[in-house]
Design a protein around this nucleic acid. Sequence first.
DNA 1: CCATACCGTTGAGAAAGTCAATGATGTAGA
DNA 2: TCTACATCATTGACTTTCTCAACGGTATGG
Lengths: 169, 169
Amino acid sequence: MSSPTEQATPVQDHSEPAAAADSPTEGTGRFLDSDLTHQVHFLTSRARGRGISHANGQLEGLDLKVRQFSVLSLAASGMNPSQRELGEFLSLDPSQIVALVDHLEQRGAVRRETDPRDRRSKIIVATEAGQQLHGQALKILEDSEDHTLSTLSPRERKQLRSLLLKIAF
Amino acid sequence: MSSPTEQATPVQDHSEPAAAADSPTEGTGRFLDSDLTHQVHFLTSRARGRGISHANGQLEGLDLKVRQFSVLSLAASGMNPSQRELGEFLSLDPSQIVALVDHLEQRGAVRRETDPRDRRSKIIVATEAGQQLHGQALKILEDSEDHTLSTLSPRERKQLRSLLLKIAF
DNA sequence: CCATACCGTTGAGAAAGTCAATGATGTAGA
DNA sequence: TCTACATCATTGACTTTCTCAACGGTATGG
């Protein structure tokens, strides 16, 4: 199908009406038909980029990023994750977890507690202040997500979450 | 403010059966119920990470990454994108586009052609070799995506693409 | 002609990702 | 018990990606 015959398509061939200036989707919308737009990794990348960017902006007031929130969230869950577990679940290198936990610990949001069953591993738990911070951030993130998914019906949002869950693990 | 009241859920409270060693989802599956797992940005991040990681692995033989492919793909589309348009559509800084195009150009996969209508902008077009490379990569990426979405039915895949498309733009 | 805006490019620095090595600790077998 | 080996958190080095400011060449509108 994709045998690239001599169709080199010179530039002057892109005959677009000179009135392209007032196109509807502000210029790059013409790529919406491209092959790329059908690739799931491209769509997830873009969706993620937009969502995270907006979320980070909204979290600015708390001086927190989604990256840090994800660690705080698990720490505040009462599930007592170890750093290794955090790394695995969040798809982050152990060394990155160290930096993240360092930051949250200096901020007084989490504590490192040595696991009595395995003194090599450290359990990350949220402090009282951390719980509070998590609560505030969660609220903001819910609003942010609501904004990101504003073009989706409640039913579609549920579907999306369900589908993503299936391919995320 | 941050007086840590002694209610901090001590570690020995995480009473888990000692037989946890043979748990089904290899350890971190116990976080699947956490709040985080309900957040779309977390799910998209994980899904994207897994997908791109696998895709990049499969593309290794072509010495190509999805990042570079996305540029090549638009260059090979016959839509004559300018670098600015590439940046906007791919959510990348213009300076990153320069590097990406430089690399593909040195490889002989794309050409920069000055737009006769606006000599500031450069149109990126795929060479013959670039078209061929794109064809091979596309095939590999389709297989990779098939692998990433293996837990989804054809109908679900279509739904997913449709939903992602709605929130990606 | 002039001021202003835009495009690609360069360079610098921050953030994020990857990898190897180490000390402390746990585990299993001789 | 002693010994070899594996695992966890940590550090450090390095690469990749992101973000931003500046600059030359070009376009646009007065």
